[in-house]
Computed example of a mutant assay.
Amino acid sequence: MYKIIVASHGPMAEGMKKSLEFVMGPAENVTALCLDEEGISKFSKEAKRLLDEQDTEEVLVMVDFLFGSPFNEFSKLAAGYAGKMEIITGVNLPALVEAVNCQEDGSSMETVIPQIKEAAVMKTLREILAEEESGDDDE
C-alpha cells in the first residue's frame, strides 16, 4: 500500500487532511506537511524524515504548486529515495479522496495516478449538465 504525503505552502495540507477525515474518517496513511513561517530548512528536514520512515514503500506526494517550494524539496529528495515515489501537483480535495479510496482498495500507486488526476479536474455546473444531457441521448 502506498503512503500519501500532502504538502503545501501554509496550513492548507493540514486543512485538507482534516476535511478528508471529516468525509472519510481517520486517514492513518496520509501525512500533512506544511511550509510555515519557520522556513524551508525545517520543511526540508521534516520531508526527509517522512521519506526516511517510508524508505522501501511507495509514496505519493501531493503538492499545491508545480515548482513551488514543497514540489522542489520533494523533487530533490526523490533522487535518493529507495522506493517508488511520485509527485502530483495541484492537489485538491477530490483528488485526495480518490487517492485514499484507491489506497484502501490496495491498488498500486502507478495504476491509480490517472484516476487521481481525473478526479482533480475542475468542472462547472453547466459542463456537468451538458455531459449528462449528451449521455441521455445515447440511451
Rank of each mutant, 00 (worst) to 15 (best):
A95S: 14
L35Q: 02
G15N: 09
V59P: 01
K123S: 12
E58K: 06
I87A: 02
A79R: 13
A13N: 04
D136H: 08
D138G: 00
E46I: 00
F65S: 04
P26A: 15
P26L: 07
E118P: 00
A27R: 02
I5L: 10
E38N: 13
G10D: 07
I4D: 05
V91D: 07
D136W: 05
R126F: 06
L33R: 02
I4R: 04
E73N: 05
I5K: 10
M122T: 06
V6L: 06
F43E: 06
I116H: 02
H9A: 13
V23Y: 08
E127D: 12
S41H: 09
F74G: 01
V121C: 10
V97A: 01
N101R: 13
N72R: 11
D105P: 00
S108M: 06
I116W: 04
A27Q: 07
G25C: 09
A78F: 06
V91E: 09
A79M: 12
L77K: 05
G68A: 12
D64H: 02
M62S: 14
T124R: 00
I88K: 02
G39M: 05
F43S: 07
E14F: 00
D137M: 14
T111R: 11
E46R: 14
Q54P: 02
E127G: 11
M85C: 12
E28K: 15
